[in-house]
Structure formats: structure tokens, C-alpha cells
């Protein structure tokens, strides 16, 4: 009996239109549409269904979209789930990562997608989903699709998937030992000769780029300084209006404190999943000490307090995402002429 595959694509590749149809809800069609036809031709499996969802719908109604699609799959038999390729289309890439992760968790089948290294979905999902390294634009479709098929066919055959560099997917954050045909002494001498000759070599351990920011110099005139408060401890209004994730956060929020003397338990809590929340939920000022800052303000220790505090969750959050959030927050602080920030981590 031949194996079965189901393919997920967005409204554009689903031939429903462009930006004007980006709000369409998920639909499932028997047979193959767009890239699903090529998958059907190349995979060692039949593509039985094509799922199409508007990128905006997936982006703004994520939970609903995922639920609809998981329900669509409930009565289907399939051996693999494929999404994309998404190239450098940001919303599409995030959608492919989101749905692949959800399908893998719910149905336990192998999932695979493809996107460009600049696609934000890559960093968000590479640890959960095999994401093939893809081109930046849709003209790379043929090449990207073939790359997906090569690994997908291995998955279908139950073969072991090799190392990221060899198979062409983004590293999933797992390093394992593997036997090769060259002794360490030979690899060492090659690397030494290469360094001496100034030739290229590949280190067997690549240290991730560590972006260390120097600590700012002390504030000269605290009495007139405007101070802003930020935290990565996940302090949010109890209804989490910005839907900040409990780990691996990609979202942040800011909350008005101009009219309050302190954060009240019951009104604020932590959404952070990396520590026991009891103490922070009882008194959120333990992480975000608005109470102390208000007292110090009255005492004239510093000039003024920026009317909002800012929150995200630090645990599992990548440096890349953290840097992006900072770039989004900084203009708001500059606009209000903030002189110094207190960033509290947990």
C-alpha cells in the first residue's frame, strides 16, 4: 500500500489570490493544488489532500486556525505532513512552522517544511520542526521542493535523518557524536596546517555568536533622570492581553502604571514558565518593583518615572528574538526621553 502525504500551503500558492485573500480560513481539498502537484510527482507517497490557509488568518487567529486544521486531519490517514516551501515570506514561514509543530505534536507523524534563513519562522521553529534551508524567493521553488522531497522520502522510508549540514536543514539544537573515517589526530593536523597557511577549515564546534552589550555608564544626574522599568520575568495583567508566551517568547507588552502605587497580586501575575510563580503572583513587585520605585520617586531620589513598564519572558527566548523586541521597544523609550532603564531578569 502506498504511503500518504498531506500538504499545507498559503492562499497565494493555493491559487486563491494574493494579499486580498490573506484572511481566508483554512480549507481542505482532496487532491493536489499548486506545489502539492509537484510533491505528488516526486514523493514516494501520494498527496491525498491539500490544505490552504490565508497567512493573515493563521497569523491573527493562530489557535483557531490550528484547531480547524487539526480537526480536518482527524479522520485522515497520512504518513507525512509537508508545509511550504515558504522562502522568505515571513507570515507564511511562521504559519508553516506553527502548523508543522502542531501536527507533529497531535498526530506524531513526521513533518517537514522549507524556508529561507532570513525568515523569522526559521529561528522560531527550527528546534521543533525539520526546516530545509530554502531560497529567498519563489523562483527557487523547484530546488527547494526537491530538497524537501529528498529528506521527506527518507522519513517515509523510516531511514535515519543525517546531520543538519549534510541533509541541508537548519540545526535543531541537538549535537550528537558520530563515527567518521578520520582520526582526531589527522583532523587536528589538517586544521593546524590550514591555520598556519591561512587556508579555510571548518571547526567541529562552532561557538554561537555571543552578542555582549557593555554595561552603560552610571547616570550622572539621577535627581533629574527619567527612568523606565522593564523585565523578562513575565509580569503581565492577569488576562495576558498581549498573549506573551511562557517560554521562547516572541511577544512583549507594556502596561500603564502612572495611576498606581504598586502592582497588586490578582491584577498582575507572571506568565514565566521557568520558575515557581507563587512568590511573584502573590506580590508582582518582587519581580517588577513598581512599589519601591514609586516610594523613591516621592523621596526625590530620581527625577521621573516613564508611565509604562515593559514585559517579556526570558526563558528559552533566542538572542535574535530578544534583539528584535528591544529594537521595537527602544523608540518608545526614546520618544519619552527616558535617560536610563532598569531591566530586571529572573
Amino acid at each position: 500500500m502506498s504511503k500518504k502525504a498531506i500538504v499545507y500551503i498559503n492562499q497565494f500558492f493555493g491559487q486563491l489570490g494574493g494579499e486580498d485573500t490573506a484572511d481566508v480560513a483554512p480549507s481542505i481539498t482532496e487532491g493536489q493544488i499548486g506545489p502539492a502537484m509537484a510533491y505528488n510527482a516526486q514523493l514516494n507517497a501520494d498527496v491525498t489532500h491539500t490544505i490552504i490557509c490565508g497567512d493573515n488568518f493563521m497569523g491573527s487567529h493562530t489557535e483557531e486556525a490550528v484547531q480547524i486544521i487539526l480537526d480536518m486531519l482527524k479522520d485522515k490517514e497520512f504518513d507525512i505532513f509537508i508545509a511550504g516551501p515558504a522562502f522568505n515570506a515571513g507570515r507564511y514561514g511562521v504559519a508553516c512552522g506553527t502548523i508543522c509543530k502542531a501536527v507533529k505534536e497531535k498526530y506524531g507523524v513526521p513533518v517537514i517544511t522549507s524556508m529561507n534563513q532570513e525568515n523569522p519562522g526559521m529561528e522560531m521553529f527550527r528546534k521543533d520542526v525539520i526546516i530545509m534551508k530554502g531560497g529567498n524567493i519563489a523562483s527557487k521553488m523547484r530546488k527547494d521542493l526537491a530538497a524537501v522531497v529528498k529528506v521527506a522520502n527518507k522519513m517515509l522510508a523510516g531511514e535515519e535523518i543525517g546531520a543538519a549540514a549534510e541533509e541541508g536543514y537548519f540545526p535543531t539544537g541537538h549535537r550528537h557524536q558520530t563515527f567518521i573515517n578520520e582520526r582526531a589526530v589527522d583532523r587536528f593536523m589538517k586544521m593546524l596546517h590550514a591555520r598556519i597557511r591561512g587556508e579555510d577549515y571548518v571547526s567541529e564546534m562552532i561557538v554561537p555568536k555571543l552578542d555582549r552589550v557593555p554595561i552603560a555608564p552610571a547616570v550622572k544626574d539621577l535627581k533629574h533622570a527619567r527612568i523606565a522599568m522593564l523585565n523578562t520575568g513575565g509580569i503581565i495583567p492577569v488576562d495576558n492581553p498581549d498573549r506573551i508566551q511562557s517560554a521562547s517568547a516572541t511577544r512583549w507588552g507594556r502596561y500603564d502604571i502612572s495611576e498606581m502605587d504598586a502592582l497588586k497580586g490578582g491584577e498582575f501575575k507572571t506568565i514565566h514558565a521557568g520558575f515557581d510563580p507563587a512568590a511573584a503572583n502573590e506580590n508582582p513587585n518582587r519581580i517588577m518593583p513598581i512599589d519601591a520605585m514609586k516610594v523613591l520617586l516621592k523621596e526625590g531620589v530620581y527625577g521621573s518615572l516613564h508611565p509604562y513598564f515593559y514585559t517579556t519572558v526570558g526563558t528559552g527566548t533566542t538572542e535574535k528574538e530578544a534583539a528584535r523586541m528591544a529594537r521595537e521597544i527602544i523608540p518608545l523609550l526614546q520618544e519619552d526621553q527616558v535617560d536610563a532603564c532598569i531591566l530586571i531578569s529572573t
Binding site: 543525517g162 546531520a163 549540514a165 540545526p171 541537538h174 550528537h176 558520530t178 563515527f179 582526531a184 564546534m205
Partner: peptide
């Protein structure tokens, strides 16, 4: 792990 040089093993990212 034969770090003195005999090792046929390396580490790869998966």
C-alpha cells in the same frame, strides 16, 4: 573519547 588523537568520533549538529 580518545582525545589524545585516536578518536574516530566527531560531533555534528542535527
Amino acid at each position: 573519547d580518545q582525545t589524545v588523537g585516536w578518536s574516530f568520533k566527531t560531533m555534528k549538529d542535527f
